[in-house]
Amino acid sequence: MSDDLVVLKDISRTYQKGKEKVEVLHQLDLTIANGDFLALMGPSGSGKTTLLNLLGGLDQPTSGSIRVGDAELHKMSSSALSKWRSTNIGFIFQFYNLLPVLTAQKNVELPLLLTRMNGRERANRAAIALSIVGLEDRAKHYPRELSGGQEQRVAIARAIVSDPNLLLCDEPTGDLDRETADEILRLLQALNKEHNKTIVMVTHDSQAAEYARHTLHMDKGTLAPEGAG
């Protein structure tokens, strides 16, 4: 049995912009092994985020196939993708995207609302996730009461609380200072090494990419051969 978690074959993605068609990804092939930590780098508009969106089932390719685990994403409906995302993918965004009206604890519990867990089980799971990111003492704090680094940790706790195999990070340190960014990257590294999470991280920051096991470079919708960057 293959140890590949993600297999993309001949992926193209074209957007209609006014009367013009813009091809963001062009016949892209990619395989990501289970337990990998992959950094995706490249200039703005190279298609990194589009690729990440396809991997997370947020978008569908114009052509080609995407398999993540056993799921053939390109064949799935919007609602099937939603259900699949809730248990298989953890998202981490540049601007954290926490709900400001909820405490850290309740933000982390959000994905668990989609499960059959009761309130107590949800709270326990969220507490564990917060302790993994070192924020158990900030559980009752609202996002506005946390620093940027702490907010991103809460976002990471939210991403791992339903124990997904694949974490997709879009510029997770893009809004943080160097020191805090390194803390977050070490945390991601630990999740990869100690909890065997497969991570795909889009970044502009070459220092951030150094925390990954592999780095791939994208340009004009295609992947450069490994090591070519």
């Binding site: 919007s78 809730s86 998202f91 995207n97 959000l110 989609l114 939210r158």
Partner: peptide, 12 residues
């Protein structure tokens, strides 16, 4: 925020 909910798996 609503988009984040959808990202987390909340259906339409």
């Amino acid at each position: 925020e609503l988009a984040v909910l959808k990202t987390l798996g909340f259906t339409d």
